[in-house]
Amino acid sequence: MSEFSQSRPAAPIVRRSHGLFGIDLASPRHANKLGYLLLAPAALLILAILVYPMLLAIDLSFHDVKFATLSFGADDYTLKNYQRLFSSPEFWNAIRTTCMLLLVVTSISLCVGMGTALLVNQQFRGRSFARMLIALPWAVPEVVAVVTWVWILDASFGVLNWLLLKAGLIGGQVSWFSSPGSAFSAVTMVMVWKGYPFISIMILAGLQSIPEEFYQAAKVDGANVFQRFIWITVPCLAPVLGVTLVLTVLWVFRDFSIIYVLTGGGPVGATETLAIMTYEEAFSFFRMGYASSIGVVTLLICAVISAFLVKKTSHAIY
């Protein structure tokens, strides 16, 4: 064998395969080029429909213009929009409304979501059917949900008023959309109804991934139902809960359809969030420069929340 290998010509034949442009992407040397090639269409598309518009919007926010321009403004950059924004009571009102909505909707949705998830995580016949039904509102488009609730909340013939009257909780028919407080409650109701299913789905998935052995070990150690919930369920759910919460917060922060169709932001700005304000400024009053500056501020707040999400996600066990 060794003699055989010695008689072999010193320079072996080099085999190469030639693909597109003489480069075989299957060759180990060029494998990474394929990675770039596969990423390219999405990167270009994102560049065109996300990055470019986003830069335009940021540029726009530094110009006092009525309409969106496509060229990056060559002249007179101005901070006028931001100055106006920060001195506008309307803006601070929108911030306050957004934060209140965030707090109320997120906490109620979390309670409902957690409750329903724990309920359908029990062992019983028909459990998978109950699991399916309990998150069904997730599949109802927001506009449809809003219209349905408008009918339920109708002042004269709405079923909710009738029920509340019957129960003696209200003296007369409530006109849900005419006073700030009741309009805010109406928005809260619809948003919770649309928001809890996602939380429920996520928490249920989290619950299912907790190994049964943990609970058995805790039982052996003598922990009761509540101790098991506090010391096993909650810590094991923590990563899922964190991600879910932030996603829910971002949704409330940016949602447009529910509030816009339900109340249009009224009455007297009681339900006007940053998203509604941005849209109104841009498409009702055609102050697109000003609207963009609200959008940029919203984006910055969202970016802070997202950064938190990314950090949270990278720490997540799941």
């Binding site: 999405a42 994102i46 429909i49 996300l50 990055v51 470019y52 518009p53 986003m54 335009l56 919007a57 726009l60 309409f67 969106a68 321009t69 496509l70 971002l250 922060f253 940016r254 447009f256 940053l274 998203a275 509604i276 941005t278 849209y279 841009a282 498409f283 697109m288 609207a291 963009s292 609200i294 959008g295 940029v296 919203t298 984006l299 969202c302 970016a303 929340i305 997202s306 999400l309 990314v310």
Partner: peptide, 22 residues
């Protein structure tokens, strides 16, 4: 990858302004 993740966070009410112009 990170940009894609972050762009999920873009407020649609802001993005719609330049898109409208385009």
């Amino acid at each position: 990858g990170l940009f894609i993740l972050m762009s999920k966070m873009l407020p649609a009410t802001m993005l719609i302004i330049p898109l409208f112009g385009i």
